[in-house]
């Protein structure tokens, strides 16, 4: 993991992404403390007003403060994105390592499952499952999203595990009687750490986009709770006449994804020894 931290400092893109992401986190979680309005408050004296000193991002049709709503949505999107990334990357590591290391029928069945999940259009399945989320349980959404994001990484991890399995030090560990879980955790996993770090950061952006997309259609986070997707969906139809309704949320969503993409791509460039040659 220290390699990841060092790479962070070495690559300008990765540094920029990390700083931007940190700023966005600070805005999402410290912002509500500064704002005079809560996200559930309604100002009955200001309906659909443009941004002003009182309402920094303006107000909605029903008089809710867009700044507070947007920050609340950011919190949701960021937390869901992070949780999904960690869960799906963990699952990918587990399945990929077991599949590559154990081999045989276990491998064949697991990879077949991966193929099957790749064929099932994930968005459609999550949308069909959305009635289960009706009570606004975000953890169910996290679980469902993670279940569909791990397959490609699992294949990469499997391929790397197969090549690591034959290395002398792994063979030595196996012949001295170390159990499979121990070999996987102590000798294989450390080699995959940088790949997994990059993958997790890129998965954050996929998860954030997926979550906001589902919420946009009303299949993810539902009212009365709010996410960036619901804010954009509510304001998007009136975007030409009242740009502040969706504009700030859309801009912040793009910034979050941009920050995570910069971070992930920068890390990949810095950690991958072959990419330095071409650049």
């Amino acid at each position: 993991m220290t390699a990841v931290v060092r790479a962070l400092g070495r690559n300008r893109r990765a540094t920029a992404g990390a700083v931007l992401l940190a700023l966005l986190f600070a805005l999402a979680f410290a912002g509500p403390a500064v704002s005079p309005w809560g996200w559930e408050d309604t100002d009955f004296t200001a309906f659909r007003r443009p941004p002003s000193a009182d309402h920094w991002f303006g107000t909605t049709q029903s008089g809710r403060d867009v700044f507070a709503l947007t920050l609340r949505g950011m919190q949701k999107s960021l937390v869901i994105g992070l949780l999904v990334a960690v869960l799906s990357t963990g699952l990918a590591a587990l399945v990929g390592m077991v599949s590559g290391f154990v081999g045989g029928w276990t491998d064949r069945m697991l990879m077949w499952g991966v193929d099957l999940l790749l064929v099932l259009p994930a968005f459609l399945v999550v949308a069909v499952l959305s009635p289960l989320l009706r009570d606004g349980r975000p953890l169910v959404l996290v679980a469902v999203l993670s279940a569909f994001l791990w397959m490609v990484t699992a294949r990469v991890v499997r391929a790397m595990t197969i090549s690591l399995k034959e290395r002398e030090y792994v063979l030595a560990a196996r012949f001295t009687g170390a159990s499979t879980p121990r070999v996987l955790a102590r000798h294989i996993l450390p080699h995959l750490a940088s790949l997994l770090a990059v993958d997790a950061s890129l998965n954050v952006s996929v998860a954030v986009i997926a979550e906001s997309g589902l919420s946009y259609f009303g299949f993810g986070v539902r009212p009365p709770d709010t996410s960036l997707g619901t804010v954009i969906a509510d304001g998007g139809s009136a975007a030409t006449a009242y740009p502040w309704l969706a504009g700030f949320a859309a801009g912040l969503l793009v910034l979050i994804v941009l920050a995570v993409n910069l971070l992930g791509d920068g890390l990949r460039d810095a950690l991958d020894p072959t990419s330095g040659r071409a650049r």
Partner: peptide, 21 residues
């Protein structure tokens, strides 16, 4: 391309609509 990749399709569509207006 980085900016475009970071914009979900529904954000892109709304932006284009505003520009077209």
């Amino acid at each position: 391309s980085y900016l475009l990749l970071s914009a979900p399709v529904f954000v892109l569509a709304v932006l284009l609509q505003s520009a077209a207006q």
